[in-house]
Every structure is written in structure tokens, then in C-alpha cells.
Design a binder for these strands. Structure first.
Lengths: 175, 175
DNA sequence: TCACCTCGGTTCAATCAACGAACTTAGGAC
DNA sequence: GTCCTAAGTTCGTTGATTGAACCGAGGTGA
């Protein structure tokens, strides 16, 4: 979606957001980053995305300032991808899209529930906690499998780790 | 993005939403529908989307229950595409994505502002009106060009019509 | 009656991106 | 020396997007 064949003539904030986020796989990668996935191999295991596409998308997200690529060990040097503030600001959009998908595109309801930890209440489609009435930032949310959850489908370390309730943005332990 | 090569293994609400909405052009078409665009020719003029792609996307959105295709005149019979309730429920997602794009991906700020008509206040990224504290449904919003607006760029009937403040979902008059 | 116009598409060849399997590179472990 | 892991890159095949041309139903004007 490079120059010339992009949404460039659409001088609109949504179009510019989609220039990056509208590429296939990109938003699922960002969602996984909210779930605490940080490593190339874990994204790969959870997403079934072609390796080349994953590498390109991670690079694009780093270039756009959504993810930060930083070393998590030396010798051998390895890197992880962590959401920046700009990336965390995508939470309302991700929550709204996921909420719509759970209501209108899922046979059995949402696969995951988001609970505002201080209140123990599910957030609504705007990302607001009905109990305290405030917008619930992702750090204060816990993901947990919902009624339409993974059951038979996936079996990879990331999917297994997500069967346990998990605070958003905390690194996911994939034993 | 048909069977077999879709996000099907991602048993997740977001993945299912993206199965439809993640296709190129789809969310821009939905955005235009919120702006009041209803006709094939107007989408075409505003979006620079290939005709075949537009036809395919409109069909997919109708199949998914996001748009309703209904006649607006007989002899010759012509149809228009109007957002259903399911389509209107996409507003929080569209608003959140557009808000992110305006803050993080636009050089000069948002190209369009959304004002809650009863309060005269701009809605925030969650779609909530800061003045009345409630979620502002799209019917109560007015679009208006903002600081980063179209200026030189596009010159088509739809872009011209959007230079005037306009209530969301009201049919756009493209004289 | 004929030519031409509009609207809402469809068709098709060329191009571009995604896919997936194989390969690579750098270091550690046995 | 051999094997293993993590994080990629390479590359031929498949599939989607593009844009220009075409189509058909109906109206309009001379």
C-alpha cells in the first residue's frame, strides 16, 4: 500500500489511520501486543501469518511509532516489540471494533471479555466502565475467555496462555 | 479474503469484524455512508475506488447486514445504499479510528470535526460528549471541516458538499 | 426514429501483494 | 562437530486490486 496506490487522496484522518492499520494482519498484531505478546515467534505462533508479512508489518508499526523494538537479551541479541503510548492510544478503536464483532459477527457472543479490575465490571463498546463511569485504560483491564472462546480451535503457547485471565499489556508468559 | 485464506482460525471477535471490515476500502465506504453518501456514483466520485471493487464491497456490506440496498426511484429503477442499525453500530469504531488518525497520523490535525448538536461540543475519542457526559449517537452529530481539511485536494460533488456543516446520516445533496 | 446521455454496474489483462515452503544467520547446548 | 532456537530473508505460486473498456436499461432532444 505504498505511494501512489494508497488512500492518499482521501484527506481524512480515518484514511490516514487506515493507511497503516488497514493492511491485512496489522490490527491483529496490535491486538496481540495488547494481550502481552512481544516476540516475533509468539506473534507467528498465534496468528498463522506468513513470516515475511509479519516481519513487514512489525517494521511498519515500528516506523509509525506504534511499537518499540528493543533488546530483551544480549548474546544472542534478541528483540521484542512493545506498544508505545501511540500504540496504547489504539485501545478505544480496538475495543470498539472487537465489541462490534462480538455483537454482530459472532455466532455465540464474544470470545473474550474485558473487565475493569478496580470495579470488576465489563467495559462497554466505548471502552467506558459502567460502574465507575470513566474510560478504562488498558492497564486497568483484564482479558478472560468469554462464551464464544477458542475452545477447540487453536493450540499454540499463546492461545493456551490466554486461557487464564490476564492483565492487558503485561508480558504474556508462554512457558 | 474468502474461505480458507481468511482469519477463520482466529476465533476472536476482532478477527471476525476484520474479516468484513478489514478489506481495503470497506471502512471508507462505511464512513461515507455516515456522511450521507448513498449512491454508487457518489461513492465512486468521492473514493477513487475501482468500480469493480466498489460493487464487490457494497455487495459484501449488504450481505453482512451493514448496508441496506433499496430503490429510490422506479423507471429507471435505481437503488441506494443506507446504513442499517448494525451499520450505525460501527460509529464508535469509526470515530475511535478517525480520532487516532487525526492525533497521530495527521500533520495538521483532524480534517473533520464532529460536534454534538444538542451541546455544541466536540466528541472525544470514545464518542462521548464531554458536555453532557453521554455517548453521542451519530444522528446527533454534525460533521464540519477541521483545521486539516481537504483544502486543495479533492474536487468532486461529494467533497464540495462536505465543505458545509452536515448532520451525519442525513442524505448528502450533491446537486 | 435516431443519436446520445446517465446510472450502475461487468469484463478483462496487467500489476501488485499475500502465501508458504525453504533457506540463512548468529549464537548456545550437547 | 552436530543439533537447536530465534528471527528473520528469499522466492516461486496464487490470489486480489487496478484501471480502462464495455454493457444494458431507460430517458431526452431533434
Amino acid at each position: 500500500m505504498a505511494l501512489g496506490k494508497d488512500y492518499v487522496a482521501q484527506d481524512c484522518a480515518l484514511a490516514r489511520a487506515l493507511e497503516l492499520l488497514g493492511e491485512r494482519w496489522t490490527l491483529l498484531i496490535v491486538r496481540d501486543a495488547f494481550y502481552g505478546v512481544r516476540r516475533y515467534g509468539d506473534f507467528l505462533a498465534h496468528l498463522d501469518v506468513p513470516r515475511a508479512v509479519l516481519a513487514a508489518r512489525l517494521q511498519a508499526l515500528v516506523d509509525a511509532g506504534v511499537l518499540d523494538r528493543r533488546p530483551y537479551q544480549e548474546s544472542p541479541r534478541r528483540h521484542e516489540y512493545v506498544l508505545t503510548d501511540r500504540g496504547r492510544d489504539l485501545w478505544p478503536a480496538l475495543n470498539a471494533l472487537g465489541h462490534w464483532g462480538g455483537e454482530h459477527a459472532s455466532p455465540v457472543g464474544p470470545a473474550r471479555l474485558y473487565t475493569h479490575l478496580p470495579c470488576g465490571t465489563r467495559v462497554d463498546r466505548t471502552g467506558t466502565c459502567p460502574a465507575c463511569g470513566r474510560f478504562a485504560p488498558p492497564e486497568e483491564l483484564e482479558v478472560r475467555p468469554g462464551p464464544g472462546a477458542d475452545r477447540p480451535h487453536r493450540d499454540d503457547p499463546v492461545s493456551r496462555a490466554l486461557l487464564r485471565p490476564h492483565r492487558l499489556l503485561e508480558p504474556l508468559l508462554t512457558e
